[in-house]
């Protein structure tokens, strides 16, 4: 199943990427090459292989529920050029609804 330029544009918009027509023309065959690689993997018979979500044979570690110091707020807010000093928060475009 080959991707069309429209598919690529859609995947791009899901990732918030504004792709130019030139970029789409370049990326469409590249993504199709990647899909072709996966199509080869699909040919393998995996009937007896349990679904694997992680390749490393280690057990998950659970940490005890204890608190650790958070970062000082000034340090956190310094990460953004758009800060509302009064509220002490990051400025983002107006969010409607919720």
């Amino acid at each position: 199943m080959a991707l069309t330029p429209d598919d690529v544009r859609k995947v791009g918009s899901l990732a918030r990427l504004a792709l130019s027509d030139n970029e789409i023309a370049r990326l469409t065959p590249q993504l199709n090459d990647l899909l072709a690689q996966f199509a080869r993997l699909q040919e393998l018979n995996t009937d007896d292989v349990p679904p694997t979500s992680h390749a490393v044979p280690v057990k998950a570690l659970l940490r005890e529920d204890v608190t650790a110091p958070s970062l000082p707020r000034e340090e956190v807010l310094r990460l953004s050029p758009h800060v509302d000093e009064y509220i002490g928060g990051f400025i983002v475009p107006q969010v409607i609804g919720e």
Partner: peptide, 20 residues
Amino acid sequence: NSKMFCGCENAFGGDANTRT
């Protein structure tokens, strides 16, 4: 006591961005 994946305190209210 702490958040899901880090040690920041899990609490309600308080000053913004003090538990990150």
